[in-house]
Design a binder for these strands. Structure first.
Lengths: 152, 152
DNA sequence: ATGTCTGCAAAGCTTTTGCACTGAT
DNA sequence: ATCAGTGCAAAAGCTTTGCAGACAT
């Protein structure tokens, strides 16, 4: 599936969601969705704002925050708080579900996937009687590069 | 081990830390430590500030934030970001290590402990070559109470 | 005595809100 | 023609910072 097809598909998902919720299909909302899906990796609202200001489409911060909430609600993006006060976002469609490890020395973020996370999720859901909708798992530590540098 | 003994012990830990770092043993720092360890559960800086203002000891927000950083650094408290922008803190000494599940409907926070988290940690550390110092794991969902209410 | 720590207030940053205008339905 | 959505700017809320005075060493 190429970039164009993914764009078309997520637009369709978003479109269905908007209809279902009885909201309006504004050009801003789809422009933001495109911009989000053109990005790779993590980003924050301010970065997206600057980028869209400089590029073809102008949007306000208010609309960006509003649309982020919609995209989260329909599952097209996820929101992270990597220990800072700046929320980081990440697209999810056609992206393998994964968790993150952050190097506290250089700030590098890497991804991994371990099926045991879901096993734990199932156990916790059963024991505490929750309907779990999402999880967030982060490991923090020192990456091998930083370990070497510190020894020098 | 009673409350008094815990207070004495954590004061000693903090005292050693301050000496090792070449910092000063100010009354404010120990007053904040006491207050933190007198609390149960999670709290934010503003709550602590109000409480200390109303109680025997007056401290500034600046000192509170400063001291929180020290207490985190010496491992006497941990900092959480439960998806909001308000940092939540929690004491750690003599507290069983645990993770959290948050009800997205009523905001209730419950705790659980699953040994498989450490197994995942070990695997990730080995595969990606990190020295992992901490992790944060949160599940989000709907608790049984809220599920019942929504059906009414 | 020295220089770190404190308190206060101001500033900084991200996010939210109020309001008038715009545009999707 | 409605009224939800947008943009702008102001406000809000948590956290950090600058600076003068206080006090631990």
């Amino acid at each position: 599936m190429g970039c164009k097809e993914i764009q078309a598909t997520v637009r369709q998902i978003f479109s269905n969601y908007i209809e279902k919720k009885g909201l309006r299909k504004t050009p801003e909302r789809f422009a933001i969705l495109d911009e989000v899906y053109a990005r790779t990796g993590h980003f924050d609202v301010e970065t997206l704002y600057i980028q869209m200001k400089n590029a073809s489409y102008q949007v306000s911060r208010a609309t960006l925050y509003n649309t982020m909430d919609l995209l989260i609600d329909c599952g097209l993006i996820v929101k992270h708080q990597f220990g800072k006060n700046i929320a980081q976002f990440e697209k999810t469609y056609r992206c393998r579900q994964h968790d993150h490890i952050i190097c506290t020395s250089c700030g590098k973020v890497e991804e991994y996937c371990d099926p045991r996370v879901h096993e734990i999720e199932n156990t916790v859901a059963q024991v505490l009687d929750y309907t779990i909708t999402k999880h967030s798992l982060y490991f923090y530590g020192i990456c091998s590069d930083c370990r070497k540098k510190n020894k020098t």
